[in-house]
């Protein structure tokens, strides 16, 4: 399915100036050059290595290679916004399984074996089972989605993901009529995940997340296997992660090993640790503060000591036109 963006969720052209303000001249020139080259030589458009500047190349898993060649590029855009450099998106991460600091995931995640990988699908489905990644995804076409990513910590990025709508996968395993929620679980592998071994970590592993079934079936909800035209770096959740662009980043669970269709709302990791701070819905909402900081604004990364790059946070992270109807009649201050 091809998703065409509605004009209002796309960034307004007035945002262009503020966004380019922090870009170095060099970066700006290089970006322009790439665009021009892309226009002059259409064949470049399928050349994944050159799509984005400064991307660390990675070997493509055998099952992904043929899919990559047939990718539908840029099925959603965020016009007028600069894409966050790959280096920042891949070295500034929250992935507590690899440690509490932003650099920990990039430092430790390379040890994680991501092949072979299998996904357990269970609960309220007609076709439960343990699926190998390559079998599960064989019928689907890769799509590139450029999404804003808003972290609950009040920073944000713009990231080009590669993946499939979660809905396609769910339809394939056929949820039963009593399936109302979807639960997700991250790999729990102390041997390769030093954060899990830390005695001072408060998280009850494995990390679990959840969505309402209609949220999970929404066309914007993505199961990502790649970003920036390449396979996902481990620290970004390889080989398989969720991306729900209208929710705070912690909902977009990484390195998924289990998807469960459920009849009742699952209790999620952050929600059980601090329910007054992290709700089940966790929709991006400038009007509902995190108890420890305001969510009215966000720092668009990268920023600098002399360019804070602060911008107002948008309701549903700017995707209100697409998703607001999911929450009709709900008090979003109560169901945060």
């Amino acid at each position: 399915m091809l998703i065409h963006i509605t004009p209002r969720s796309a960034c307004r052209s007035s945002e262009i100036t503020t966004e380019t303000a922090y870009l170095s001249r060099r970066h700006f020139m290089a970006g322009t050059g790439l665009l021009l080259a892309g226009a002059a030589f259409p064949s470049l458009a399928t050349e994944t290595a050159s799509r984005y500047e400064g991307v660390t190349p990675a070997p493509v898993p055998a099952w992904l290679a043929p899919k990559l060649a047939k990718t539908q590029w840029r099925t959603t855009e965020v016009s007028g916004e600069a894409i966050t450099p790959f280096r920042d998106a891949s070295q500034y991460n929250n992935f507590y399984e690899f440690g509490p600091e932003k650099r920990d995931p990039a430092t430790h995640a390379h040890q994680l074996p991501t092949e072979p990988w299998s996904l357990i699908i269970d609960g309220e489905v007609a076709k439960p089972g343990r699926y190998a990644l390559e079998d599960l995804f064989s019928p689907f076409t890769l799509q590139e989605r450029i999404y804003r990513m808003r972290c609950v910590e009040a920073w944000s990025m713009v990231i080009p993901w590669l993946g499939f709508p979660l809905a396609e996968l769910l339809k394939r395993v056929e949820p039963t009529s009593s399936a109302h929620y979807v639960g997700f679980e991250t790999l729990n592998d102390p041997e390769h995940m030093p954060g899990i071994r830390s005695r001072f970590a408060l998280i009850n592993w494995p990390y679990v997340e959840g969505l309402r079934l209609d949220e999970a079936m929404h066309p914007l909800t993505l199961l990502a296997v790649g970003m920036y035209g390449r396979v996902l770096p481990n620290q970004n959740g390889a080989p398989l992660r969720l991306v729900v662009p209208w929710k705070y980043g912690f909902k977009s669970i990484k390195s998924i090993v289990r998807i469960s269709l459920l009849s009742t709302q699952p209790r999620t990791t952050w929600q059980s640790m601090a329910p007054q701070e992290y709700g089940f819905y966790a929709n991006v909402n400038p009007d509902v503060s995190h108890p420890r900081w305001s969510q009215a604004q966000e720092r668009r990364l990268p920023n600098g000591v002399f360019s804070s790059n602060v911008r107002p946070t948008l309701v549903f992270n700017g995707y209100a036109d697409e998703v607001a109807s999911l929450y009709k009649g709900m008090d979003l201050k109560k169901d945060y």
Partner: peptide, 9 residues
């Protein structure tokens, strides 16, 4: 200091 140097400082 990474993409969010103010926060690190």
């Amino acid at each position: 200091l990474g993409p969010d140097p103010g926060k690190v400082l």
